[in-house]
Design a binder for these strands. Structure first.
Lengths: 200, 200
DNA sequence: TTGACGAAACGAAACGGCCCGTTCTATATA
DNA sequence: TATATAGAACGGGCCGTTTCGTTTCGTCAA
């Protein structure tokens, strides 16, 4: 009984995927992106680099965007700071994020995902999901500050989170990842002034 | 005397460029981008659409990014509001920008430029230039507010401008261009709280 | 416990198709 | 007559898919 009619059937969960190949492909993808940038990042280039066959890549990753997302998720997750003071949290968040994007492959990967999202539906969804997730996580900084009485209860955490990460986005997309301590502190202070509890 | 050695010589300003062709190419580029999105936006597709030859396009636009930038600049320039109250200015700016991106081709064009900037040096520079220009223009809203005594003198206009347009960026890139009146007002109020003069 | 079987993943090669950026030709225009 | 034009064609690269023969590995009978 031929499988012709169900070529594209969803792969069973226990499929025998070769972990070594997957590893090599992700390594190669990371290297290619780092060396040649978004322009040189092709499935064929990754396959060559990994000494893997193209069909192997296409078997496990449906699109270039999916591959990018996977190598992004291999990167160390960014920790959300908890210094005990909201302004410090914000400054640390911005500083850490910019440094991470500048010093590791994360920035290039993320920029490529943004670019890919213009063509690829799944990348766009993943991007929105990522943004929403970070909004939620950043929002926790605000919730903690509220618990400490540092921030008024009627401040919307989602909007503040947008505000904070938006700073980072702008720096990423316009290539200003080398923002100095002073600029970061000023941004943090500005945001903090916006959300600080109106004392007495 | 052959021109072989100077194939790429800069075209003289008075070159006899066919205005009708240029118009048709820009029109076609806009249409192709609107119909097929960033994925289908190729020089060949534009040439087909415009019934123009590829060499004609390459003669006048060095890259896809340059073409995108030109059709972007044909779009109506966004007006920076001057309502007399900084909070109103900010809300109007955000509202107008999001509406413009949502209702015209501007959003698609701009997203494509962002995508292209990952590969194309000139697009990246143009993007940074655009961002800087908008920072400066938005900063004027702050300067006017300072003149009115609405905002403290020691607030950095550039950072506030970043803050405001960053909101718009995030909405553009995550596809949330349909932000409601309420969300926009909340964002404007938040920014305004951050920059409002500490009265008394 | 061993060994053969068979399903599934694998690397390599090739495909038709699209697009790139360039070069050539022949035509139209000023 | 000089220049821009449309169009065709080029060598090259990448796309996503198919086909090939090979290797890996779980299963199960001996």
């Amino acid at each position: 009984m031929p499988m012709n009619e169900e070529k594209k059937a969803r792969r069973s969960i226990g499929a025998r995927r070769n972990p070594a190949s997957a590893e090599a492909i992700l390594d190669a993808a990371e290297t290619v992106l780092a060396e040649s940038g978004h322009a040189g990042f092709s499935i064929e280039a990754v396959a060559r680099r990994a000494r893997a066959g193209k069909p192997t890549i296409y078997r496990w990753w449906p699109s270039k965007a999916a591959l990018l997302l996977d190598i992004y998720q291999r990167q160390k997750q960014f920790a959300y700071p908890d210094t005990g003071a909201i302004e410090e949290d914000i400054a640390a968040f911005l500083k850490g994020l910019l440094a991470n994007w500048r010093d590791t492959a994360s920035g290039a990967i993320f920029r490529s995902i943004v670019a890919e999202a213009q063509s690829d539906e799944s990348a766009a969804r993943a991007l929105a999901l990522y943004a929403a997730g970070r909004r939620a996580a950043t929002g926790k900084m605000i919730e903690r500050a509220k618990a400490r009485g540092e921030v008024a209860d009627d401040v919307d955490p989602a909007i503040v989170a947008d505000l904070v990460s938006a700073f980072a986005w702008v720096h990423l997309l316009t290539g200003r990842l080398d923002a100095g301590e002073q600029e970061i502190r000023a941004a943090a202070r500005l945001v903090m002034q916006g959300i600080a509890k109106r004392a007495s």
